[in-house]
Amino acid sequence: MSNSDSFIDEVTEEVRRDRLFALMKRYGWIAVLVVILLVGGAAWNEWRKASARASAEQLGDAILAALEQDDAQERVSALTAIDAPTPGGKALLHLLTSSEQASAGDDAGARNSLDAISADAEVPEIYRQIAAYKALTRGGTDITVEDRRLRFEGLATPGSPVRLLAEEQLALIDIETGERDAALTRLQALLEDAEITSGLRRRATQLIVALGGTPGEVSAG
């Protein structure tokens, strides 16, 4: 390579370097901003996770402390004093509170706690349906048979986590209202359901036998 070629290469490289520096001066802030955003986003995400974890631990500690009270009414008071930071946490608190209220003999209070969950649109649907089911099974003279039937039918829809349990309650309502054949048909359908649990299968079988039917046979109506 001649001296002239070497000189041209050096000049070309210097021009490229000058252009690169000029671009960095002009647009370098964008790269810095991207780095700041990435680092800041990662830091925020970690802080959010740590905050949520700490909040959950704090809620768990408060619940455990409340449940350690000797008297059911004291446990109820301690649970209602807890402030849950999330809809799921509130649902859990109401479920625990309703259980303790029932232990204290306060069925009306237990139903109110459960109704508070089922009526809260922010609570995940699975909690709302479980609460609605538990509230209905607690009964109460203020709920008519037909009202219970309508509500359980609403819980017995496909995809509901309490569908089969609601079907069992509907069969019990059929028995309560003297509709033996309807109850047998519903119970037989339960036995054929692929999602039935062993406990529910056992209860359905016992009811069928108690009604004079044979498990696996459809009532003649």
Rank of each mutant, 00 (worst) to 15 (best):
Q129S: 13
Q188K: 10
R111K: 15
D61P: 08
V209Q: 01
H94S: 08
L155C: 00
D9L: 10
A84T: 04
A121K: 14
L96Q: 05
L114Y: 03
N112E: 12
S103H: 02
I143Y: 00
E168K: 02
R201H: 08
R75V: 11
L170P: 04
D61Q: 06
G109E: 06
Q58W: 05
G28C: 12
T80W: 00
L190P: 01
R16Q: 12
A50Q: 15
S113T: 06
A56W: 04
E168F: 06
T144A: 15
L38G: 12
E125H: 07
L79F: 02
S118K: 03
E176C: 11
G212D: 04
A108F: 00
S198W: 07
S6E: 12
Y133L: 15
A220L: 08
G213A: 03
L170M: 01
L38E: 00
R201I: 09
I117A: 03
D193L: 05
D107A: 15
T80A: 11
A102K: 09
W29E: 04
L37S: 09
T144C: 13
A52Y: 05
L33S: 13
A104G: 11
E168M: 08
D83R: 05
L150N: 15
E176T: 14
D147G: 12
V39T: 07
A156S: 07
L191R: 02
G140R: 08
E125V: 15
G105T: 02
R186Q: 11
E13K: 09
T97G: 14
E125I: 14
V15C: 06
D71G: 09
K49V: 12
A121N: 12
R149K: 11
E179F: 07
G199M: 11
E176G: 09
D193N: 13
R48P: 07
D181P: 10
V145H: 07
A132L: 02
V34M: 10
K49F: 09
I63N: 04
M1T: 09
G139C: 00
S51H: 08
M1F: 12
E167W: 05
V11Q: 05
K25L: 10
A220M: 10
A43R: 01
N112A: 15
D70T: 13
T177Y: 02
T86E: 11
T97W: 03
